[in-house]
Design a protein around this nucleic acid. Structure first.
Lengths: 147, 147
DNA sequence: CTGTATGCAAAACCTTTGCATTGTT
DNA sequence: AACAATGCAAAGGTTTTGCATACAG
């Protein structure tokens, strides 16, 4: 079963109003191959350019996907917009390795209670994001053995 | 006691190796006046330009402060880097109103336990960020009365 | 004094946009 | 056929950088 992820994603596109173009399919198929957050240029230089896609198309598509909440923007604070495929759950709880950028989606939410308190105080339309950043076991080990 | 915040901050600068210039003092004194996340241009157009500061100096200074963890970058996802003064506690738990950009630092941390579990799994140098985004009571009310 | 910080101007950078053309539904 | 999406090229806006000068320690 190759690319279940990609076809699931494309299925989502189908159900919406947007048109399913060759370019968008290619972008989706490329996105799912990334295990770390990817930017427009990452997709472009890793095959999409060869397929004849324009960088502008990729930017437009990534914006479209993000607006529809099909992907999430990750801020690595280097002036470069990156995205990750959205996990099944709506909001984002991530664990990011600052060395290799490997990203994990965490299950379990420890802040629902806190959010509920804020709601009681009069805040509405609440959403939240929990981000852990650190060194994953692999990168941590590399640093040690490098000494 | 005017500008306790500013002098506290400047005191921190003193203790580090960096030089305390007229420009840096002015930037600090301006920063503390902002109750919402501020960008370089915000500082520039709100008095620092009149004081003769250059935008480049402000960018350099904001980068310097952020590298030293004296201020924190906030990503509002509009292609504009903003910062907030760091709260006393090291890490960031914020509540941001998406309408007026008013920001609150939340006390109490509900994710320490989760972080401890990650540490046990082999992750190191862990830090975390918890961000709530929503409409504050004031903005929420405005939307309602606008109907 | 020495080395860092600033001002100025230009460049770099990522991202967006206009418009004619192509392609989907 | 109608409208949305793409490619191409150019512009946009924020942030960075080089270099001579000024300044803090």
């Amino acid at each position: 079963m190759p690319n279940t992820k990609a076809s699931d994603f494309i299925h989502k596109l189908h159900q919406s109003q947007i048109k399913l173009t060759r370019q968008r399919k290619l972008i989706v198929e490329k996105m799912v191959l990334f295990k770390i957050p990817f930017g427009a240029e990452d997709l472009y230089l890793n095959g999409l350019k060869k397929s004849g896609l324009d960088l502008a198309t990729i930017y437009r598509t990534l914006n479209l996907f993000a607006e529809n909440n099909w992907i999430s923007r990750i801020d690595l604070n280097d002036g470069y917009s990156r995205y990750v495929m959205k996990p099944a759950s709506s909001h984002l709880h991530t664990l990011l390795c600052k060395a290799c950028h490997r990203i994990e989606h965490l299950s379990g939410c420890f802040v629902e209670k806190q959010q509920e308190e804020l709601r009681k105080k009069g805040f509405t339309s609440l959403s939240h994001k929990v981000e852990f950043v650190g060194l994953c076991p692999d990168c941590n080990q590399q640093e040690r053995t490098a000494l």
